[in-house]
């Protein structure tokens, strides 16, 4: 009984630790669109974005407000870290196809 309670506590602890590090946020570029086009991240923490380009053409993930600029070859993924950021909406786009836009929403 006691060991069961211990195991339960341990499980709680492990899940809490997992929640503290949510891992990378995945974004996919498909048919000239970011999927999802809006991601939410907590303020004041560093977050890894993993961006996969599923198109036949290269893309360039770029954002003036996030200071990020990175080429993504067709069929491959890159990762960029953003933050810690203040609350707000930060726009990003595909520099090779500027109509393709998305937002990082920090709250």
């Amino acid at each position: 009984m006691r060991s069961l309670a211990l195991a339960f506590l341990l499980a709680l602890f492990v899940s809490a630790a997992a929640a503290a590090d949510p891992g990378p946020v995945t974004i996919t570029i498909r048919d000239h669109a970011f999927v999802p086009a809006e991601i939410k991240v907590p303020a004041g923490t560093k977050v890894e974005l993993s961006i996969r380009n599923e198109q036949a053409m290269p893309a360039e993930f770029e954002s003036a407000s996030l200071h990020r600029e990175k080429v993504i070859s067709p069929g491959s993924a890159i990762s960029v870290y953003v933050g810690p950021l203040n609350p707000g909406r930060y726009e990003f786009f595909d520099d090779f196809h500027p109509a393709t836009r998305g937002f990082v929403v920090v709250e």
């Binding site: 198109q55 036949a56 053409m57 290269p58 893309a59 360039e60 080429v71 067709p74 520099d95 090779f96």
Partner: peptide, 14 residues
């Protein structure tokens, strides 16, 4: 190199 990548991409997308 960005111009080359970009133009190659358009050519590849066709």
């Amino acid at each position: 190199s960005e111009v080359v990548l970009f133009l190659y991409g358009i050519a590849a997308a066709g």
